[in-house]
Structure formats: C-alpha cells, structure tokens
Design a protein around this nucleic acid. Structure first.
Length: 422
RNA sequence: GUGGGUAUAGCUCAGUCGGUGAGAGCACCAGGUUGUGGCCCUGGGGGCCGAGGGUUCAAGUCCCUCUACCCACCCCA
C-alpha cells in the first residue's frame, strides 16, 4: 500500500460501521441530557489561548505541553480546545446567561485536541460529551451530575458501574493543607521518586496517585486532608455521599483521587470501565466554584462532567455491548435486464420520497447475485424487474424472510412502496 | 517527553537457519443448466511484505534511519 497522504498522528477516520456507534451514544446522551433538562451549547473549536491558560492553569500538563496553539494571520494566539468547560464558561459569561440564583444547565458534544503521545484510548483528536451545571452551590447539584453520568453509562448498557469520588477542599482549607503537605514532602524529598519530587512543587495532591511502593510507604505518614478540611467542605462532601446512596449510585471514596485541572474545588470524581488498560477513566468531573469569577463573570458555583466517547466505545467492544440494531425495513430494488433500469430507478425514487429505506445501486445484476446482495444488505423485500415483467407491466415482490413472492401490477407496487412496505 | 514491542491481502494472521514464481481463514466477485438469496461445493480478483537506505550471489527474513501503531510510565477522557 503506497500512500503519502494519511490521517495525522493521533487522528483517525470513523468509518460507517463505527460511526453508527457514535450516533448511538449521541442519541442516548441526548435522551438522558434532555431528561435532566440540559440545553445544548455549541462553542467554537478554537479559542484564545489565554482562555485555557487562565482557566485550566498554566502549570498543568495540558496547558504547559499539550495544546495545539498557533498564531493566526494577524498574530493572535489561538488554541484548539483541549477540553470543554472553559469555552462553555466563556460563553455563558459573554452572553450573560448567569442570572442571580438561577440554575443554568448546558451540555456539549464535540471534538477536543491534545498533543499527547497516542495510546489505546488516547488520541490527539477525541470526542467528549459533557454537561455543566451553573448556579447551585449545594451538593444536590454534584449529586445530579454524578447521577446523570451513571444514568448515561447504564443507558448504554454497562452494568456494575462504580464512581470514585473525593473532595479536595475549597479556597479556605486547601491552601492550608497544601502548605502542610508541601512541608512534609520537602522533609522526605530524598525518599521520593523523581516524579513525586516534581509533583510536590507543581500539584502536591498528585503524590497520592504515585504507584511506587517507596512513595506509598512514605505517604502513610503524610498529613491527613480531613484534619484540615473546613466544616463546610466536610459537610458538603458527607451530604453528597448520602445523596448518592439515595440515588443508588455506587460510589467509592478515595482520597487519592486528584484531577489535573486547577479549577476544581471540593468534589472531584471519575468512573473507570474494564477493558481499557491503563487509560480506563471514561468520565471525570468535579465542582469549580471559582472559575466563572476568575474568568471575569459573576461569582457562580458550578459543577460539571465530561465523557470520553472513544474510550466508552472501546469498553463497549471489550464488554460485548452491541449497538441496538436498526429496525427500519429495507426494500431492495433489483433490475435484471437493461430495459428494467428506468422503472427500477423510478420505483426507488418513489419509495425514498416516502422515506422507505431503499437500496438501489443503479446497476444490472443477475437474479442470483441480486438476491444475494439483497440478503447481505438485510433487506426485507426485493422488488424484481426483468423483461418478462416489463412486458406484462408487472413486477415481482419477494419477501426474503418467508421466501414467498407475488406478482403485482406497477400500480400495486407503487401503493406497496408508499404504504405497507414500511 | 521516557523506556520497550510491532508493521505481510479489505480484516485477523502464518511465513523455519536469508534460497523455487509470497500463503491461510474471513470478506469480496463469479459459477454449480435455460430467471430465485441464506447452507454447501468449485473457481477467481486482490500484496513494491509500512517508507527510505545498507549488507549479500540472493532480503518479507539481517543491519540502520524515518513514520505509524501497541504496551508501560507521565498525564488524562
């Protein structure tokens, strides 16, 4: 195979077979998002680079080394969006969607871009669905978003879904804890791995995620977040956990769960599915009570989640979850003689105008190969036209399932294609 | 960004110690009496063996470079 032009690294083509899987997920998501009364928002694929630097945090991996940034013809620095929350926040501020004490619920669907090393379940262009819930500070909002996430995975067909949740505190208690943790890590610096030494400076909470046994052992003695947590945060979290139990969402509390964006406050969560190897998180999210204000909007609490669609599709394949088959009846129009092509084309056109799913390729086939093709295409009915039929102004309509067939006049066939074929 | 692995037909993969003309299954196409699908049988098309260099009388096979993919790390969805 000689090809100079190929899909770029970390991108790929979605062929019809897989596209139907995306379509199924989108359909399922829209149904569930609608049930929770979220409205769709479509934001541009690229934004000012500054939006992500300020929103996600300059020191995060995504901003410091994974963004597709470029200068446009006037020298503006633009970036293909690496995630969906910052653009949505920008949009709700820009359009004054945030009225006081009003809940605003939005969802988005679309491609995201990160310059990462591709791996299974990790592409440079990938699809995320996500929801953002603005204006409610109470844990009811967190619970709703997590419940919605669970509902989505169950709607697709996943069983035994468990979500991991944690709280990382708020602007009053987290800094105190960070100071204590950093102090602790500095003391033990020599005993930590290189990665953890780096984490200790950039995002100290991440050290709890380290897989090195030595680091884990050291961290047994680390200061405990719960000793630093303010009353409000503690109450928020325990209430949330209770809500989730009421909602029958399986949750595991893990103090090791930390997320890579700077904007999270209090609640963070993610859900993993089996069959994905190292990249097994298919959704992740959390609360971000300060982001809107930081980006120039009115102080507004918010919570959101995003779903990794390609990863969900991989998990579906690994767990043998099939996309429900299309139920539409299909009619196959088969011309077996040159003279029959015109009538075949006309009948196909008529059927299509009546939104009957119709297969007609405009080519001559032998009766045998035509029926084979119809069978493979999954057609229910085949309209067969040859010169014998034309001479009599008739056609044959064959039902593939029963094997029975009947001759009809052209008029009868037209009526069939307009009515009972569906 | 770091370390390791892989690359042969549309798909999944064989191909020995370098040595006749590059294979299988699936998929596709066509036949199996004159106009009837699925199952079965027979036949057929389709590969510059990822790209570029090198070693050799001889390279799919050995060496180097590049590219892509895979696994782990990092990070994340």
């Amino acid at each position: 195979m000689r090809m100079e032009l190929k899909a770029q690294r970390g991108t790929r083509d979605i062929l019809p077979n897989e596209a139907s899987c995306f379509e199924f997920l989108e359909r399922t998501a829209r149904k569930i998002f609608a049930a929770y009364d979220y409205g769709e928002i479509r934001t541009p694929i690229f934004e000012a680079t500054d939006l992500f630097v300020r929103g996600i945090g300059a020191s995060t991996d995504i901003v410091s080394k994974e963004m597709y940034s470029f200068a446009d013809r006037k020298g503006r620095s633009l970036t293909l969006r690496p995630e969906g929350t910052a653009p949505v926040v920008r949009a709700v501020i820009e359009h004054n969607l945030l009225k006081s004490n009003q809940a605003v619920k939005l969802f988005y669907i679309g491609p995201m871009f990160r310059y990462e090393r591709p791996q299974y379940g990790r592409q440079r262009q990938f699809t995320q669905f996500g929801v953002e819930f603005f204006g409610v500070a109470e844990p009811t909002a967190d619970a709703e978003v997590i419940s919605l996430s669970n509902h989505f995975l169950k709607g697709i067909g996943f069983q035994n879904v468990t979500t991991t949740i944690n709280t990382i505190g708020c602007e009053t208690c987290r800094p105190k804890y960070n100071v204590a943790l950093k102090g602790f890590l500095r003391q033990r610096q020599q005993k930590l791995c290189a990665d953890c030494q780096h984490r200790a400076e950039v995002n100290p909470l991440r050290v709890f995620d380290c897989k090195q046994m030595d680091c884990k052992a050291e961290l047994m003695h680390a200061p405990d977040m719960s000793d630093f947590m303010c009353k409000d945060c503690e109450h928020h979290f325990s209430t949330l956990v209770n809500f989730l139990r009421d909602f029958q969402v399986n949750v595991t509390v893990s103090r090791n769960l930390v997320r890579g964006f700077d904007y999270y406050t209090r609640t963070v969560f993610e859900t993993s599915l089996s069959g994905l190897g190292a990249q097994d998180a298919v959704l992740g999210g959390g609360r971000y009570d300060n982001l809107i204000e930081e980006l120039g909007g009115p102080p507004t609490p918010a919570v959101g989640v995003s779903f990794g669609i390609e990863r969900i599709i991989v998990a579906m394949q690994k767990q043998h979850i099939a996309v429900p088959a299309e139920q539409d009846v299909m009619v196959f129009i088969l011309a077996i003689d040159e003279e029959a092509l015109a009538l075949a084309g006309r009948l196909a056109d008529l059927a299509r105008h009546n939104t009957v799913r119709t297969r007609f390729d405009g080519i001559l086939r032998s009766l045998k190969s035509g029926l084979r093709a119809a069978d493979k295409a999954g057609a229910q009915h085949v309209v067969i036209i040859g010169k014998h039929e034309l001479d009599q102004q008739q056609v044959i309509v064959k039902c593939l399932q029963s094997g029975k067939q009947q001759t009809m006049t052209i008029k009868e066939c037209e009526a069939f294609l307009q009515g009972s074929a569906k």
